[in-house]
Each structure stands twice: as C-alpha cells, then as structure tokens.
Write a protein that binds this DNA or RNA. Structure first.
Lengths: 342, 342
DNA sequence: CTGAAAGCGCTTACAG
DNA sequence: CTGAAAGCGCTTACAG
C-alpha cells in the first residue's frame, strides 16, 4: 500500500486540490459540509501531509539572529561556535543565521544591538540577555515588530519573549548545594561563592537555590558573601584568594559561572587544590582538566549544542505556528563526575 | 540576494541539470574538467542543495522496525511508548516504524523475531538485544540482507551492527560507585547489588564499572554477590531481603536495572528506607517517588525519548549515507537528585 | 560522457 | 465558497 497524496484525497472527497489545502491548513472560507467530506476522506485514506513537499511549496525562509555576549567567557564562545556550525548546515533547510556579538555585562550595548535587529526583517532572534528594563523593553519592541524572540541561557521572564531555552538555574543551585552537602557530610565550615556578576539572572538564581538548600538542609555549611569575577580570571582569583586568606575554615567553593580559571589559580597557589570541595558550572577545557585532577568535585553543565539546536527548532516552530516536543527541548542540568565525562 | 538553485549553477557552469546532479551526488561518469567547472560555479554562487526539494524528488521511503523486549519493565515500556509517539509524527517524513515486542531475557525468541524481519524489506532496525551468539548471528544475517541495524540500550559489540545507541554502561557503574562512595564518606560496610539479569550486557557492564571503582577507591565498601530480579518485583524483593536479613552492615544498595520496586519494598518492610544509600537506574514513576521520599539517594537515567529520536535519525543517516552529528547523538548518563528532577 | 523533460506532493495566486 | 494551473528545487529514467 502506497501513501495517499492530496490528489487521492481530492478525488475521494470530490473536490479540488485547493480545497484540500484550505482544509489541511485551516484557512477558512470552506463550507462546513465540504470540510466534513474532506476530513472523512483524509481519515479513510489515512492521509498524512508530506513535510518535504509542503516545505518546498511554501518557500518559507527563516532569517534568524543569535545575540551572544562574547569576550573571554569560554562557555559562551563554545555556544557561539555551535551556532556557527549549525548555521552552515541549516542553510539546506532555508534557515539563515546571523551571529551578533555584544560586549558582556552591558545592558545598553545589548539593547542597542536589539534595536539594530528591528530593521532586518527577521523571522526570529535568540538572545543571551541580561535582565534589566532597557533590555526588556528592547525585547518587547522586537516582539511588537513581529519577530519571534526567545531567551537563551539566561531568561528575562518579564519580557514578551515567547520562550526560554536553558536550564532551571534555581534547580541547578539547589543541586550544587545538595551535592556539596553530601560530599562534605560531617564537616562544618564556610562556603565561598564565586559568580560572574549578580546582574545576570542565571547567576542570581543559582545563588538563590544554592543558599536556600544550604541553609535549610546543611546548616553546618555557612555561605560567605558572593564574590564577582566579571569574566576576568585575575579578578576572581584575587577576590576568592582574599576570602581564603581570611577564613581558614572554608570547606567548599561554589563556582557558579565563568570564574573557573580564577578559582583554580587561587586554590593552587595556596596548596588547597583537592582539599576543598569545589562544585563548578559549565564543562570547558579548563573545568574538565580540573575535574580530572581532582580539583573540582563535580561540574554542572548545560549542553551548548543542545541549546543551539533547540533554539533553531523552537524559532522555526514559532514561525510556522506548529507545536514543539517539550521532552526534546528541555535543557537538562548535566552533572559530571570524573566517571561520566563525555 | 536570493538563494541559488541548480538552474543557476547549471547556467553558470554551462552544463545541464543532470550533470549538476551527478556532481552533487558524486555519481561518477563525469569528466574531471566538467566536475571542476561545476564545483567552481557552486562555490562562486555559494550554492547549497535544498533538502526539502531533494527529499521530495528522491521519494525515499524509510521502513524501520524497533525490536523491544516488553513485559513489566517500566523503562522499556516507556521507550516503546516514545517510539510509538514518534512513529506517528515521523510519517510526515516518509518514515514508517513497526514495533516488534519480544519476551524479555529470551535470546531464542529475539533471534526468531529478527529472522522474521528478514522478509520485510526493511531499511533499518533498532534492537534492544541480549548479547549471545544466536542473537549476534541473527543480527549479522539481517545486516547481510542489506538492512541497517543499530543496537539500542544494550550493545552487541561483536555483531556487525552499524551503531550502538545508549549510554556507556561501565561509566554508569563507575559513576554510581563514585556517588555512593562520597555519599557514604567515612562509613564501612557491605553494598548489595540488584540486577535484572547478568545475561544482559548493559547490566554486566554496570556491575563491572561499579565494582571496579568500589574496590580501587572505596575499599571500606564491600560489594556482595549480585542478586538477579529478572524483571520480577517479588524475586528482587526476596533476594535482596535475604541479604538484608543476613548482613546487618549493609550501608548501600546499587539497583542497576529494573528491580526498583522490589528494592523499595524490601527496604520499607525492614524499616530501612532512607537509612541505606540507594543508587538506582532509570527514572520511572516508582523511582521518582522513591527519590522524592528520600528512599533513593540518586537515580542514573538514560532518556528514552532521546534514544528513540536518535535511533531514527541514525538509521535514516545510515540509509542515506550521510554523516551524523556525534554531539547530538551521544546519550548522556543523566544523574538525578531530588533537586534537578525534570 | 552529457542533456531534455517529466515528475515528486504540496501551495499559491488568480479567476470565477 | 470553489477550482484549474503553474511552480517550488530537486532527481530520475531515457535517449543520444
């Protein structure tokens, strides 16, 4: 038995191709009785629209932009590299992707970049955003122009973005605390927290989740004030170093974003590498080496390849008005020990 | 600027469409000088083949079969359900999927089922296999008939299967041991190991990795002989129960496959739930509840949705002779704590 | 070794 | 409210 086509359905229903198409795509302007006839024929013939033929005939073009803060941040460089790679293969599917790089921690620059996008008749944009009102307004303006906008890695929930693609950062913070609490079973002491910037929502949420679980479940572990590395290894190293020098009872470090190189250096210089329980975020060349050397106890990761693919799929689905598969798009909080490293 | 088509390339190179197609698909029978001209034109025009048009014109049909042992095993039922769901949506892409259910732990029945497939002119088959010589030969015969075969969840590495889709099970076992060793820091005692069947390669590999790390890194934790549950909760419960009754110093349980219900029951009946560190495999309704209740300390998981999608993508890529994206197809060893549950 | 023409299964103006 | 016809960008026999 061979697949039924629109021609078969048209013949069976006694109508033309155009009418079949109107019913299939719910374009309206068809008598209820005719719709009924067509739907009968569809289910009788077990018809299913061929997606390749539909794609070809529709001549849709998807113009996408990815806005990514870049600098020395290895995770974001990896993400940009994945997007670049996918941009190349996606051309075969009529998807063109521009990567817009912006300076990190700079809401004004980001808002400017988004404003630039307004003139480019984009289908959609994926934005690794800082969360403040300037950025939120810039996102909402883009959406108002008819551009599908999704946030990537860090969310701006108050904006009109259609979707957020990234991990649940509070859950990630809670997971880090749970792991640290168990790994340090029976110990008492302070825990240092190194972030990139508290202006980043993802970092703020991780901290929130982490401290929440530490306070309620592991009261013997006392969090220190957060230290900000600002994507600068020297800054992170110095700030964590000052805490390490001041408090002799630091038993854990939560490196919740982009400060891994500084953390490693600060520990090594003081002979503390491997003696303090360190949980870090994002699997990069540096963090992987630290995990293998026993300097890090665990790494929480989000897969940049998955995030890039997911963003493209979701932006296309939004543009086409079709459903997405939530299971496929959920970005997992990967936990890596030395033993399950890819 | 609008996308170049084969017509543009043909005009630019001064040849016909057929020749462009021969070069694009490396069919041979084209003069070197002509190939050169065409390739020049392609790169000059920055041409990229439209995949929807190619799909439509080629009229490929992908006839796939998934062979899955079913019974009371929740994980495999979930996997079959995912495949069923994808079978429906894949019809739009000319992929038809049959699900063949076989009894569990039965190499003969599996080999018979594979033999049945030989007559069905399949494009490809994904098999959740037991590893023995009968099954291996049945796989090799299918491959010899020109069917693309991949193993799913559990590998048969000595066979001619083109690909294995699933987690690295030794690494999963090592990960379980690492977690347990750290969660039980400072404790001494025995560790029970509950498997489905040691005839399953995935279970054997998990045990291997687990004992390896326990012996070398956590010598205070002594593994007991493996108990086999055979996908039967009562059997698993009784066998583990016997060990719990006999040894008062059991501090951990590694439930490495399909015995979770029995494990939970055995612990609960003895008032040991939450007092022993249990690491289990596969996220199901039962294991999720146990994790939330504190009966399980962690769950290692492989995502059945990912495995099903990956199997379909890989079988299609094998049939078309195109490359796969290894990053997208790698099945991760998910680690779930209560805090990062989806 | 190369080309002209038909066809894949949809969608899209356009006409009525 | 409905239909006839052209076209999307490839691939495929077939002919030479």
């Amino acid at each position: 038995m061979v697949r039924a086509t629109v021609h078969d359905v048209a013949r069976a229903a006694g109508v033309s191709l155009a009418t079949i198409d109107r019913v299939l795509n719910r374009r309206g302007g068809v008598r209820a009785a005719t719709i009924e006839k067509v739907e009968q024929a569809i289910s009788r013939l077990d018809y299913r629209r061929d997606s390749a033929a539909a794609m070809l005939a529709k001549q849709h073009e998807y113009r996408l932009a990815f806005v990514i803060p870049t600098g020395v941040n290895t995770f974001l460089s990896n993400l940009a590299a994945e997007v670049r790679r996918l941009a190349d293969v996606s051309r075969a599917d009529r998807v063109s992707i521009a990567i817009v790089e912006v300076p990190p921690f700079d809401g004004e620059a980001l808002a400017d970049a988004l404003k630039q996008l307004e003139t480019q008749s984009l289908t959609g944009a994926a934005v690794v955003a800082t969360d403040n009102s300037t950025v939120r307004q810039a996102i909402d303006r883009l959406v108002a122009q008819g551009v599908c906008v999704v946030t990537l890695v860090s969310d701006v929930p108050a904006s009109k973005r259609a979707h957020y693609i990234g991990i649940d950062n509070s859950a990630a913070g809670r997971t880090a605390a749970s792991l640290m609490g168990r790994f340090l079973r029976g110990e008492k002491g302070r825990v240092a927290i190194v972030a990139g910037s508290m202006l980043l929502r993802d970092h703020a949420e991780r901290r929130f989740g982490f401290e929440q679980v530490l306070r309620t479940e592991f009261p013997d572990l006392v969090p220190l004030p957060v230290v900000e590395g600002l994507d600068n290894a020297a800054v992170a190293e110095e700030a964590l170093g000052a805490q390490l020098d001041r408090y002799a009872d630091i038993v854990g470090v939560y490196s919740l974003g982009a400060g891994n190189r500084g953390v490693i250096a600060a520990l090594r210089k003081r002979g503390l590498a491997g003696k303090i329980c360190v949980i870090a975020h994002e699997l990069t060349a540096h963090s992987r080496a630290a995990l293998n050397d026993g300097v890090f106890a665990a790494i929480l990761n989000q897969d940049p390849g998955h995030e890039a693919r997911s963003a493209i799929r979701i932006l296309r689905a939004l543009a086409d008005g079709v459903a997405i598969d939530p299971g496929q798009e959920r970005i997992r909080i990967d936990i890596y020990l030395r033993d399950n490293l890819p």
